[in-house]
């Protein structure tokens, strides 16, 4: 066990689709668990991160907690990977950057269809939203990028095996797409 590669994963401002795609490597998961051991990850529900070889980030950075988690990952992981469109370029959540944060909150909580108690939530436990959604490379140094919404299981498998075997990272044409 001690020789296994330690991997941590987190979903920031994403939809968990990229994590679903990790699970989508299907029976190769058996091969993967021979090679790696999961540290903090939604897959095992471990909440704190220890020293890791590889950190995988899904989602962009939209609030103060996302910034904190991302910086923790950078600090604890030798190699940090942006997984999927939102981590790579902000993705769909970054479409809110076309509006002010105030406009977004008012649309959702004041003027939204079906809102019957208009009130912008301000509980101190809710992480503060940033004025814009950012791709993760705008906050910390990122070592590898895997685009796609989500990247396919095959793409993730190609990448992880090449990375673990210390080979140059390259993909068959059909495995890279931005959508």
């Amino acid at each position: 066990m001690a020789d296994k590669i330690k991997v941590a994963t987190a979903s920031l401002c994403g939809c968990f689709g990229c994590h679903m795609s990790i699970l989508d490597i299907d029976e190769k998961l058996f091969d993967l668990v021979e090679l790696v051991e999961f540290d903090r990850s939604p897959i095992n529900d471990i909440k704190t991160i220890g020293k890791c070889d590889i950190g995988i980030i899904e989602g962009g950075v939209a609030n103060s907690e996302n910034v904190e988690v991302l910086r923790e990952f950078r600090e604890h992981c030798d190699i940090l990977i942006a997984l999927g469109a939102c981590a790579v370029n902000g993705g769909i959540p970054a479409m809110r950057n076309q509006n002010t944060l105030q406009e977004c909150l008012e649309t959702a909580y004041i003027h939204g269809i079906g809102v019957d108690q208009p009130c912008i939530p301000n509980d101190p436990e809710i992480p503060l939203l940033l004025d814009k959604v950012h791709p993760i490379h705008e906050i910390v140094k990122v070592d590898h990028f895997l685009p796609g919404c989500p990247p396919s299981g095959a793409t993730i498998w190609t990448f992880l095996t090449e990375l673990i075997e210390n080979k140059p990272i390259s993909f068959p044409y059909e495995q890279i797409h931005y959508d």
Partner: peptide, 15 residues
């Protein structure tokens, strides 16, 4: 972009 193996936007987004 696929042809040039572009995997990331690299720069800071203007939005």
């Amino acid at each position: 972009a696929y042809y040039t193996n572009m995997l990331s936007p690299h720069y800071t987004h203007f939005f």
